[in-house]
Design a protein around this nucleic acid. Structure first.
Length: 820
RNA sequence: GCCCGGGUGGUGGAAUUGGUAUACACGAGGGACUUAAAAUCCCUUGGGUGAAAACCCUUGCGAGUUCGACUCUCGCCCCGGGCACCA
């Protein structure tokens, strides 16, 4: 009954590696390929128990698929470039590369402890030249097709990290990393035109087997809005122009009592000479530029603005003159940067109108005609004060008013998305250099493909500069080059790429990770992709998944891929919190080191405990309290060996207790279905039920014992391998161990559906929906017999005595309910 | 503010289509073995009344639909995550 995980786990990890049993060949006769992928881990250094939670249950699934007869590829690698590496390196005064590779070494050691089916031969590291060569190549393809472009864009500028941040890296107006306040700054940057795919990225979500809320979040992020772009004439002394505004509420046009422009709106600068209050206006615009994101957000309730004097707008539906304002609650980078304001039916407009004493005209009557309030009514209803549209429903009026103006050439249907183009420039050292060269004569030129990779030079001073340029600009050797077009002197782009670029295509590289000619051969892509099962944290719902989908689409359009969705099925794991219920972090000192846990309990126990804790996508606080149950369970499993019936003839199996046999088959079914549904916790509990039953048996046949081991093997691969080898007649010689002998190359047990159909059940007898009796009966059972049985029950008699039976409900195979 | 999740014993959690609420495990209590402890095994374990049989209450709170609700609907409270002036 001894169970010594330290000994057997190391032994089997070595044996598996030596025999390469988890290497996935591109083709295996008679087997279908299955690409099982966990999200590329970032090289942050120590793995904590949260990483295990990502990898260990995911490995259960991979092992299960293997046993089901698939040729499973489960690759692993490292997302090695990135800002955190630099920050940590600066802090510890070592080079980011040294820091990163030290971490990789440690993580590899830790990952091996899991005992997963990783195919290490396919390993990738995104900071290796043979990888980022292809990241750069991807950039060039996007550039060639006009999907990568350079533009001056207002960027989120972190004054402390001295770099531009993606919108997503700004949390509540603060830098995600260092929590400094983020400013808006206009900088020339490289962008990817992800907005061009917005519609397609949205539409295709339907078809994916992804968690529904993940899809919803992507949908919201893309943020499609259907509406109309309406032209408002602008008039002043000797002046006439037009201001287009975007609205989804054409039904409220009659209530538009002023226009509001974003401070950055070109209209102001273009027509400054016609404006009579130039100075105050300019001052306001300057001030709003200086505001940080955070300040703007904190003023959500307190709106500020200033009127543009000397120019009025004309409301196209009634030709009324209305004032124009500039206010920073209107954003330049959405819609047209100008809005029509309908204070009666938009809360923001209402707040603004109240503050500046502007007219509020109600044009939509609420359906249930609720009374007057000091709030805007934003719902739909019936139109009022709207000329010939009075009495029309909002939904209809939206179209009618839109069409009416359209006939007069005053508006057009328009779709806007919240999604913005992806700024990929980073003014940082530790990333893949952007393969572009600037020549005074020829302008920006792409590096020739044959000259890739543009190597990241090893420089000593990699710290960010205060002028906002990449540290690479300090390296003359790197900076000065020749123009790929005219061969004259030229300068390299010194910005590096956002790490999300690196991780947007890595799943392709695993199929062919050492290919020097192409990122992956067509043949290999065809055999493996798209990914069959993708597992990772929900923190990547918006960015990584969207970017990967964008890349896949682009590569398909360029003719390299034949599919546009990279991940057909997606599952998330939850987050493991510290025992204090807080997110694990070094500063809180609540990090659980898996190495210590493994040393104490063994990998199998930790794997199983993580699976058993609760639903996989839920996560929760790490709490060691219940781990003893798993330890006891595995001990009991190894203890069952002594019960194996020596006589192994066919008749021996038939000696088995039929109820027990039935349980075995039920368990096979349950474990299979639970693993398929990522319900690892209930799969384990059904195995525990089986063990409890085996305990009550005096003997167990080899056949059933083998079934037990195979059902358990995805969860506890080491122990089950050991026990599997021990039941062999000849004593195991490790040197002679061959992959085909391994339990992990055995087929998943099949259950016999006939054995698990229920012949007898407890018929539940309810009175008014409350259980009053249970009778063991044979099934199938018809209504008449059920009623007879129910009414002859003594307990029932007691309840219905002297009462009138109103109704009897019979649910075949389940219950009978007597209503009195 | 908006959009997603979630709230079940002392604890982690189960209940697959509206049909036996609390599976499985932890912890706790009692017992066996032992000089003793650990380990192991057995019994009890949602709350209440009761000697027992039995009955009543119980899935965040309040209502509703239903023969029957953890499950569906409405309102409210709390917790977690995401978004945040997107016209």
């Amino acid at each position: 009954m001894s169970y010594n995980p330290a000994k057997i786990e190391k032994k089997w990890q070595k044996a598996w590696e030596k025999t390469g049993i988890y290497l996935a060949p591109d083709k295996v006769k008679g087997k279908k390929n299955f690409y099982h992928l966990v999200m590329l881990p970032y090289t942050s250094g120590d793995l904590h128990i949260g990483h295990w939670y990502n990898f260990a249950p995911a490995d259960v699934y991979a092992r299960f698929k293997r046993m089901q007869g698939f040729n499973v590829m489960s690759p692993i690698g490292f997302d090695a470039f990135g800002l955190p590496a630099e920050n940590a390196a600066i802090k510890n005064r070592i080079h980011p590369k040294t820091w990163t590779y030290k971490n990789i070494k440690k993580m590899k050691k830790q990952l091996r402890l899991i005992g997963a089916v990783y195919d290490w031969s396919r390993e990738i590291i995104t900071s290796e030249p043979n990888y980022y060569k292809w990241t750069q190549w991807m950039f060039l393809q996007l550039y060639k097709k006009g999907l990568a472009y350079r533009a001056k864009v207002p960027a989120n500028w972190c004054p402390s990290c001295k770099t531009v941040l993606a919108n997503e890296q700004v949390v509540e107006g603060k830098c995600e990393r260092c929590e400094s306040e983020v400013f808006q700054k206009e900088i020339e940057q490289w962008l990817f035109k992800i907005t061009e795919s917005a519609e397609d990225l949205l539409e295709n979500l339907e078809e994916l087997d992804w968690p529904e809320n993940t899809k919803t979040m992507q949908r919201n992020w893309i943020g499609k809005s259907l509406g109309w772009e309406v032209k408002f004439k602008a008039k002043g002394l000797n002046f006439s122009s037009e201001i287009p505004v975007f609205t989804t509420r054409t039904d409220t046009l009659f209530g538009a009592t002023y226009l509001v422009l974003a401070p950055e709106h070109k209209f102001i600068a273009d027509n400054l000479s016609f404006i009579t209050n130039q100075r105050t206006l300019k001052k306001y615009i300057e001030e709003s530029k200086k505001k940080t994101e955070r300040e703007r957000i904190s003023e959500v309730k307190e709106k500020t603005g200033i009127e543009v004097r000397g120019i009025k707008a004309i409301n196209p539906v009634n030709n009324r003159e209305i004032p124009i304002f500039v206010a920073d609650y209107v954003l330049m980078n959405y819609g047209t940067g100008a809005i029509m304001s309908v204070p009666a039916h938009d809360q923001r407009d209402y707040d603004f109108a109240k503050k500046y004493n502007l007219p509020i005209i109600k044009v939509v009557k609420p359906k249930n005609g609720s009374g007057v309030s000091d709030k805007a009514y934003e719902g739909e209803g019936v139109l009022m004060n709207s000329g010939r549209f009075i009495g029309m429903k909002s939904s209809e009026a939206k179209e009618r008013i839109g069409e009416w103006l359209s006939q007069k050439g005053l508006d057009k249907k328009k779709v806007y998305y919240k999604l913005r183009d992806w700024t990929i420039s980073r003014q940082r050292y530790w990333g893949a250099p952007i393969p572009m060269v600037f020549c005074q004569k020829c302008g920006w030129q792409p590096v020739k493909e044959r000259d890739l990779p543009v190597l990241l030079p090893k420089i000593k001073d990699f710290r960010p500069t205060t002028d906002g340029k990449s540290p690479l600009a300090k390296s003359k050797k790197f900076l000065e080059t020749f123009c790929p077009k005219c061969n004259g002197p030229a300068k390299r782009e010194t910005d590096t790429m956002d790490t999300f670029v690196c991780s947007s295509w890595y799943y392709l590289r695993y199929t062919d990770s050492s290919n020097e000619k192409i990122f992956a051969s067509k043949q290999k892509i065809k055999t493996w992709l798209p990914v069959n099962m993708y597992i990772g944290g929900s923190e990547h719902i918006v960015l990584h998944l969207l970017y990967s989908r964008f890349f896949t689409r682009a590569l398909k359009d360029f003719g390299y891929l034949s599919f546009k969705e990279p991940f057909l099925t997606l599952r998330h794991q939850g987050i493991i919190l510290g025992s204090d219920g807080q997110k694990m972090s070094k500063s809180k000192g609540n990090i659980i080191d898996p190495d210590i846990q493994v040393r104490k309990y063994g990998s199998d126990v930790i794997r199983m405990y993580l699976c058993f804790m609760g639903p996989y996508n839920q996560g929760g606080p790490w709490n060691i309290k219940g781990i003893g149950g798993v330890v006891r369970f595995l001990k009991r499993v190894s203890g069952q060996k002594s019960k194996i019936r020596s006589d192994e003839s066919a008749s021996s199996n038939s000696k088995e207790n039929p109820a027990f046999k039935k349980l075995i088959h039920q368990t096979i079914k349950k474990v299979k279905e639970d693993i398929e549904g990522f319900r690892f916790n209930t799969a384990i509990s059904s195995l525990m039920i089986l063990i409890n039953a085996i305990d009550k048996e005096k003997e167990i046949s080899v056949i059933n014992y083998k079934i037990l081991l195979r059902l358990l093997s995805p969860f506890a691969p080491h122990l089950t391998e050991q026990l599997w080898q021990e039941i062999k007649p000849d004593k195991l010689k490790l040197k002679e161990f061959k992959p085909k002998d391994s339990i992990h190359n055995q087929p998943w047990p099949e259950y016999n559906p006939k054995l698990i159909t229920k012949k007898q059940i407890y018929l539940i007898i309810q009175i008014n929906g409350r259980v009053r009796d249970k009778i063991e009966v044979k099934v199938p059972l018809n209504r008449k017999i059920a009623e007879e049985l129910a009414f002859s029950s003594q307990k029932v008699g007691k309840w219905i005595k002297g009462k009138k039976v109103k109704r009897v409900i019979f649910v075949p195979g389940k219950l009978i309910n007597i209503v009195i």
